[in-house]
Simulated assay, not measured.
Amino acid sequence: MEKILEVTEIALAILESFPPKLSITASGTVPTGGWSNPKLDPYIHIQAPPDGIYDFNFVADPPEGVATQVISPVEAVYIRENLTPDVKGVRIHASQNSKTAMLDNSGQSDRHPNRFTLSGCDGHTHIVFFPQALTPLGASEPPAGAQLQYDGPEGQLIFHGEDITQEQTILGSLISVTLRPDADAGGIDFALVLPPVNLGGEARQDFKTLGIKARSRGRVINPAGAELSYDVLNLKGIAEDIPIL
């Protein structure tokens, strides 16, 4: 394979995937007709480039026989898996020139979590919380309310919309559901303390928090004393901005 004649244009796009991928589309020209298999051949970097710009050669197979003597257009696409924060742009080289395209990261800091996955340190409790029910991109209907999936000693339970109470407190968001209605045997309410999480342009961030089970006593003969007792559960969480296809 040989370098093409000239790079004319580079287009960069972040694909909606998890983890995110970078699509690189390059256009250029070759000196004659008959060139085939255009591709972007990445440089092998022992260490990440300090300026965050990754290099590629724009190459293709030249014709083996007689070819029309006319400058012809070519195009190649390269998908970089697992786009990392250090990638600032790409530089593509041809035989007569090179071009650089910078990645616009201005919108990456605006990412917000749309799924929280939590596991209890007891090994028996798992929770998935969606601040809004996820709908496909481009859907005309407005997003539905929150959803919480609880899997623990009390069973596998799913809560939607009005079944979930959300309050803003000095601790963060307090997400509350009823695991067992108050009855003769006593009820159980569960409150998840959800801190604000800044993704910082990343797709996910780990964090720690806690959940609180409030148990009522149920029907007792002598009602004296505290009517609620509390169990505190330490939780490990993952906040994510997941793409919706």
Results as ranks from 00 to 15, higher is better:
N198C: 07
G155Y: 09
L174W: 06
L194W: 15
L194F: 14
Q168M: 02
L157A: 04
P195E: 14
F159H: 09
F159Y: 14
P181Y: 02
L171I: 02
P195Q: 15
L194A: 06
D163T: 05
S176G: 04
R204C: 14
Q156M: 15
I188Q: 07
E202R: 15
D182F: 01
I188H: 07
S176N: 05
T169A: 00
S176K: 13
S176H: 07
F159R: 04
S176L: 04
T169G: 00
L194E: 06
I158C: 12
D184Y: 08
G152W: 12
V193R: 13
F159P: 14
A183N: 06
Q156V: 13
G186P: 00
G172R: 01
G187V: 03
E154K: 11
G155V: 08
A185M: 00
G201L: 10
P196C: 01
Q166M: 04
V197D: 13
F159A: 03
I175W: 04
G201A: 09
R204P: 05
G155T: 12
S176Q: 10
L192V: 11
G187A: 05
I164A: 03
L174M: 05
V197H: 13
H160S: 09
L179S: 07
I158V: 12
I158K: 13
L179R: 05
D182G: 01
L157D: 01
L192I: 14
T165K: 14
A183S: 08
G161S: 14
D184A: 02
E154S: 11
P195G: 15
D163R: 05
E167T: 07
T169S: 02
Q166I: 04
L192N: 06
A203P: 07
G152D: 11
G161R: 12
T165E: 13
L199R: 10
L157H: 02
G172E: 02
V197C: 13
R180P: 15
S173P: 00
I170F: 01
G200P: 14
A183E: 02
V193K: 11
V193T: 15
L192D: 06
L157V: 06
I158S: 11
G152V: 14
D184V: 03
P196L: 00
P181G: 00
E154V: 11
F159K: 02
E167M: 11
L194Q: 10
F159Q: 05
G200N: 15
S173L: 04
E154Q: 11
F159M: 03
D189T: 15
G201C: 09
L179T: 07
P181T: 00
